[in-house]
Amino acid sequence: MINTVEFILNCITLVIGICTWMVILMILMLIVYYLFHNRIKQEDKMTIIHGINMYILLLIFTTISISFNIQTMLGDLNKQNFNSFSCILAGYFVIVSINSLYYVFFNQALFRLCRIVYSTYGWVQLSWIHIILSPIEIILICILYSPAFVWHDIVYLTKEYYCFIDYTNLRLSLWVSFNTYGIPLCLLMLVYLRITIFIRQQSNNLTWLTKKRQQQDLIVIRRIFIILSLLIIIGLPTIILMIRFYITGKLHPLFYRILWFSVTLSMMILTITMIILTPQLKKIVFKYFRHNRVIPINRTLPNQNQNQ
């Protein structure tokens, strides 16, 4: 018999996921089109490239999460079995994509670090270095999670009908949590501290224009922390349920449904927040909507009457 709460929660997650996927695809197409059809300053170009990297990873992650939700729905309704090697791969790559997503934020901060602290080293500011950084990180993350195959820790969840981490496995859950959240957040903190210390030490020897640019870069990193903090707050229900499991030894029946609901909601909020908090991306998206805005008839009629 279908658990009504589980089924409804899965349906809500699926709807949010599909809406998020459509928004991501639209934004990604707008950004790519703008990048190839406009002359862009070097600084803005790097910001846009980081944005493209992020939205590609979001698209991959959201696509896999939607497939998971569909499998869960079909499993709830028809008890279909989706256990296969491709299922294991999907579970593996969803972990890789979410981990890579957090490193995109680190890459943005690293770019600002190079601009401020290592501005005299021209090679660290070359575009191609920052462009190839994401693919290199993805490869390293794939290697980092390769033991999951050896340990057979990505398993088919019989009650959820997809392959993912078994959070009752303490070893892998801690490994994933540390690599996904711990390392990127620590790196971001180090970058922020390094930039802050550098700016304070150099504050008396810089021109007003340089100080202004550095403060703008620092604001960007603070925005990154705001976004990450928001994502962590949204994920608190899952964290609380995990702590509950470690204390009681019993995993909540709705754990995975709540997990995917909070994660999918986080991706939707991240998709929108990045546009709002990134001026370059905001300009691209809002420019499109301004060009396609329809002027109401009741606003045009008075002007026509006056002309007559």
Rank of each mutant, 00 (worst) to 15 (best):
L57G: 11
M189E: 03
Y181W: 12
F198S: 07
S146A: 12
I138P: 00
L89F: 05
T62G: 04
I139Q: 08
D217W: 00
L58F: 03
I297C: 04
C11V: 15
L241M: 15
Y288M: 08
V191F: 02
H130Q: 11
I227N: 05
V96K: 09
C163H: 08
A90S: 14
V191W: 01
V124P: 05
I24P: 06
I12A: 10
M46A: 12
I40C: 08
I95C: 14
F36E: 14
G75I: 10
Y55H: 04
F82M: 09
W128H: 10
N83D: 12
I24Y: 05
P253G: 12
V15F: 11
V191Q: 04
K159T: 10
I48A: 11
Y162F: 15
M189H: 02
P147F: 04
W260Q: 10
K79N: 15
F68H: 10
Q202G: 03
K250T: 11
I48Q: 02
I95M: 13
I18A: 10
L230C: 15
K41L: 06
S173H: 08
K250M: 08
R293H: 13
D76L: 13
L185E: 08
L144P: 02
E137D: 03
I132D: 01
M242C: 07
Q201G: 12
N307S: 14
L170D: 13
R194Y: 04
F289L: 07
L301N: 06
L206A: 11
Q202K: 13
A148G: 05
L35P: 00
N303M: 13
T72Q: 11
I275F: 00
T158G: 12
R213E: 15
L190N: 07
Q80C: 12
H37R: 14
Y156N: 13
L157P: 06
I48W: 01
H130I: 02
L28Q: 09
Y256A: 10
I269N: 07
T300P: 03
T158W: 01
F61N: 08
V32F: 01
S97A: 15
Q280D: 14
I183N: 04
Q108F: 01
I60E: 10
Y256T: 11
E43L: 02
L281H: 00
D217P: 07
G91V: 08
F178K: 00
V96T: 06
I269F: 09
L187Y: 08
I232N: 10
L172D: 02
I258G: 05
L28A: 06
L188K: 03
L25G: 14
